[in-house]
């Protein structure tokens, strides 16, 4: 969690005499990497929870930490319903506000914090954002991509070597027609699996990946639009006769 967000939350809570409920939400709990991501998430959460608690302690504020998993909008909705006294939500940097706001029954705020602003402050408390957990995660994901790049690259090379080393046999059988038609089709499926994964992790390993800000746009907009219309309440009411 970015320190600027914690500072903001602590300041506001202090002024309004509110309590803080810090929710750490793992958005990809079932990510396929042998639980590495989850472990990293847990450690990053512990780290920022510790920092947050200290900050809250200086102002003598009540703070509670919870960990949860799932789609961020859904978790927020759930929390707001189970925990009735949430007045508003402050989201961490890197979370799409629309995604939260589309599901949240209470106002959602995000904190803008630029380096330029940090310079303007008189006290030069130029803290780096709590990047430890984040940076570890990005390097491991790069490493993971490089590894799968090697694995699938090897597999692809194997398929290509097998086909091109035995060109004559391959061409004899693959062009026989009839049921043999399944041979080239099966081959290209194998190629698209191996080479497709290879090329995917190849670009990822080079750091060329889909945009994080616009990628989910279609999905988010859909969720926002799918919310049912609020219908007029026409249920019968008891009326008081005076």
């Amino acid at each position: 969690m970015a320190e600027s967000v914690m500072d903001y939350a602590v300041n506001v809570a202090d002024r309004l005499k509110y309590k803080i409920l810090a929710a750490h939400i793992n958005t990809l709990p079932f990510y396929h990497d042998g639980g590495k991501r989850s472990a990293l998430f847990a450690s990053a959460m512990q780290e920022s929870a510790l920092l947050f608690r200290e900050k809250a302690k200086t102002k003598a504020l009540d703070i509670e930490h919870i960990g949860d998993a799932g789609k961020i909008g859904k978790v927020v909705k759930r929390l707001c319903h189970s925990n009735k006294r949430i007045e508003f939500i402050v989201i961490d940097q890197g979370i799409r506000r629309e995604e939260v706001a589309s599901q949240s029954p209470v106002p959602v705020f995000s904190v803008n914090y630029t380096e330029a602003k940090a310079g303007q402050q008189l006290t030069t408390t130029h803290h780096k954002p709590a990047s430890k957990g984040v940076s570890i995660m990005s390097t491991t994901s790069r490493k993971r991509h490089a590894k799968s790049c090697l694995v699938f690259g090897g597999l692809t090379a194997g398929i290509y070597a097998a086909i091109f080393a035995n060109q004559d046999i391959v061409m004899t059988y693959f062009t026989k027609g009839g049921l043999y038609a399944l041979l080239p089709v099966a081959t290209v499926f194998a190629v698209s699996y191996a080479h497709g994964n290879f090329t995917s992790s190849f670009w990822s390993a080079l750091g060329i990946e889909g945009s994080k800000t616009t990628g989910k746009q279609a999905e988010v907009r859909k969720e926002a639009e799918e919310r049912p219309e609020i219908r007029k309440d026409v249920r019968p009411r008891a009326e008081l006769n005076v």
């Binding site: 290509y160 091109f164 060109q167 061409m171 693959f174 026989k176 027609g177 009839g178 290209v188 080479h195």
Partner: peptide, 16 residues
Amino acid sequence: AYYGTVDIRLVMIILA
């Protein structure tokens, strides 16, 4: 492919 006209080598090079 049923008529045996697919040249798998060309396909694989282009696919690469």
